[in-house]
Design a binder for these strands. Structure first.
Lengths: 217, 217
DNA sequence: CTCATAATTTAGATAAGTCTAAATTTTTTA
DNA sequence: TAAAAAATTTAGACTTATCTAAATTATGAG
């Protein structure tokens, strides 16, 4: 159907589109760790296939069919991550690279059966929503801890940064998906935050961590 | 580590080596549905990497490191096939193409955990032995039904042909792995065979089917 | 043992995806 | 708003894996 490289470009464009509207050549190059000139070549190819809207120097957006492909890859990525954590007992910081390979397994029937096997999970191990077999999912409406005020509380439901060092740090602090937290104090000097984690313990996190840890109210 | 194409060549050479000693360029070309000239190019590359023993016009064999890689790919293929049948409820005739993709997922830890998750199966859905994480497995010593005589009996334990039409035919006749059969009659005219399948029914199979259905005595 | 045929390899081309370096367009800034 | 800087594209080259057609080597039939 589509090559591995094409799939990775579509996925990257999809993710970058979440932040901004039109995605630039340089953004794609950075996200795929490739050169801008390589990106331009691929953009022409994807535009020829009507998977993106592209005019020279103007950045790109996905067409409906491009978006459909991207969402399907993301569905596969997240279902495989869920499988790796829930069935094979990997930690949430270990699964990304494996899922990067597995998301390209083509069979739709396979992924639908995997979905059923795991009883149709709604979120992957990092809290991201898993699209259903029609590509539909509810975008989660989460706030970073840094947007909360003292005495606000909520449930840890996602992370903005997915690097393993960040995930390992969170795990060590028991700041994992599902935990209830309340804001005890916000240090005005550096915007760091003191949290009460359920009734377990108090944790002091930096502004950077607070920016990357997402809460459902 | 190795490219997808290299892995497929090594696997093909491994399988072909089972029948004959040295494998010819044309055999590989036929098995990979490619051209002999393409095979020659790849053989040079694999020889440079010390994965095969190759001298011009003389055919090839795997070196120990080439064999290790091949067996690992076969291990992955068979474990994924087992997973697809046992966990996702696919039929034995549906899983080959999916496993062809999945066998290239690189993580050794993933495959070892999958192995454990399924409780270390010894055979894939077609009766082929699954190598352990050190590449060891007992080569199964099976005979085709065509090698048996009247009143011989045994357990269906493998198939020589893996095409889905053959597997579907066997399934319809209830000639599946694990079933006990006994030879009732051999028709001398065409070497077709009449079988008693457990206490269920009698089946009449052609010489060709008898050649491709393997029995443990 | 020799010659025709079959098998294999070499030569040269192609397509996908990438790169560097140079050219072009857009954006910023003074 | 014109020049400098940044972003993007083009041009040309490289790698991997493939192909066709031609050349070479091996094999086997008489």
């Amino acid at each position: 159907m589509n090559t591995l490289a094409e799939e990775n470009y579509l996925k990257s464009i999809y993710h970058l589109s979440m932040d901004a509207g039109n995605v630039s050549t340089n953004q794609i190059a950075a996200s795929l760790k490739t050169k801008a000139s390589s990106v331009t070549d691929m953009l022409k190819k994807l535009a020829d296939k009507a998977l993106i809207n592209y005019t020279r120097y103007q950045g790109v957006s996905l067409t409906p069919s491009g978006e459909k492909i991207a969402i399907n890859i993301i569905r596969k990525h997240r279902l495989w991550e869920y499988f790796l954590v829930e069935k094979l007992n990997f930690k949430w910081d270990q699964v990304h690279d494996m899922a990067e390979e597995m998301e390209h397994i083509s069979s739709a029937e396979l992924i639908d059966r995997l979905d059923k096997f795991m009883d149709y999970p709604q979120h992957d191990p990092h809290g991201e929503p898993i699209p259903d077999c029609n590509g539909r999912f509810k975008a989660h409406e989460l706030k970073p801890i840094s947007a909360l005020s003292v005495n606000d509380s909520g449930i840890i439901s996602g992370v903005r940064d997915h690097t393993s060092s960040f995930l390992q740090y969170l795990e060590k602090q028991q700041l994992v998906i599902g935990k209830k937290i309340a804001i005890t104090e916000i240090i005005s000097f550096d915007h760091s935050v003191v949290l009460q984690v359920e009734n377990i313990k108090e944790v002091h996190i930096s502004r950077e961590v607070a920016n990357n840890l997402l809460i459902a109210l």
